[in-house]
Design a binder for these strands. Structure first.
Length: 201
DNA sequence: AGCACGATTAACT
DNA sequence: GTTAATCGTGCTC
C-alpha cells in the first residue's frame, strides 16, 4: 500500500463523533514481525470528554487515560476484564479527552496470520469484536500512544473503501453497564449494515 | 492495603 | 440465555 494513503492528523483533530462515523470504511494496517495484517473498519464507537459518563476520562486525567489527553491520531490502548486489549484512536484538541473505539474490522491482508492468531475460532468471528481484532492484529500495550499518522509506526490507518451514508447503521453504544442517561443512549455507535459490497472480487 | 468492577469473550445450559 | 475467566485501575477504609 502507498505511504501517501495514510490518514493525516487533521482528520482526527475534529469532533469525536464525526471522526467515528468517517472511520467506517477506512483500512487499519498492522506491520508485525511476521508480515502485514489489515482490515476494513466496520464498527466504531465515540467516547466524548470527561462529561461523558461512559468515557474513561470521567474520572479525570490518570496514568491510564493520559494518552486520551494527548495529540489526535495517536492510539489509546487499554486493558480490561483481566485479559483483553482494546484499541482506540485519540481525537480532538490536545488536552481534550476523546477517542474512537475500533469495535470490528473486515479482514483483508494477512489472512494466514490472522488465522494463526485466532486458532480455534471460526472465520466469521476472527475480528468481529474489539478484543478479537486486537488479538488478530497482535495489538497490545506496547503500541499504546503510538502515532497512527506516522509511516514509521507499526500501526496506521489508510484510506479504504467508500461507504455510503445509507449503509451506515447508527445506534447507542453497548456494554456500558450502569452508565446513566443521557450517555447510555447517545447515538454514538456506527457500523456497516450491508456487507454485500465486500463479496465482490 | 483491600476491594469491586469493567468500552469482553468463549464456553456452557 | 447464563456465566467463568482474570487483573489493572480507581475508589474506600
Amino acid at each position: 500500500m502507498q505511504i501517501n494513503s495514510i490518514i493525516p492528523a487533521p482528520f482526527y483533530n475534529r469532533d469525536v463523533v464525526q471522526v467515528a462515523r468517517e472511520l467506517i470504511g477506512k483500512r487499519l494496517v498492522r506491520r508485525s514481525d511476521a508480515g502485514l495484517i489489515s482490515g476494513i473498519i466496520s464498527e466504531t464507537e465515540a467516547y466524548n470528554g470527561s462529561q461523558d459518563l461512559a468515557c474513561h476520562a470521567r474520572a479525570g486525567r490518570t496514568a491510564r487515560t493520559a494518552t486520551m489527553y494527548g495529540p489526535a491520531g495517536h492510539a489509546y490502548i487499554y486493558f480490561t476484564y483481566g485479559m483483553h486489549w482494546l484499541l482506540n484512536v485519540v481525537t480532538g484538541e490536545e488536552g481534550y479527552p476523546a477517542a474512537v473505539l475500533i469495535r470490528a474490522i473486515l479482514p483483508q491482508e494477512g489472512l494466514d496470520l490472522i488465522s494463526k492468531n485466532r486458532t480455534g475460532v471460526g472465520r466469521e468471528h476472527w475480528t468481529d469484536g474489539p478484543a478479537k481484532l486486537t488479538r488478530a492484529l497482535l495489538i497490545g500495550k506496547e503500541l499504546n500512544g503510538i502515532n497512527l499518522t506516522n509511516s514509521d509506526s507499526n500501526l496506521w490507518i489508510e484510506a479504504g473503501v467508500p461507504i455510503p451514508q445509507d449503509n451506515i447503521y447508527v445506534s447507542s453504544r453497548i456494554g456500558l453497564g450502569k452508565t446513566p442517561e443521557p450517555w447510555l443512549s447517545m447515538p454514538w455507535r456506527f457500523r456497516i449494515s450491508d456487507l454485500a459490497f465486500m463479496d465482490k472480487p
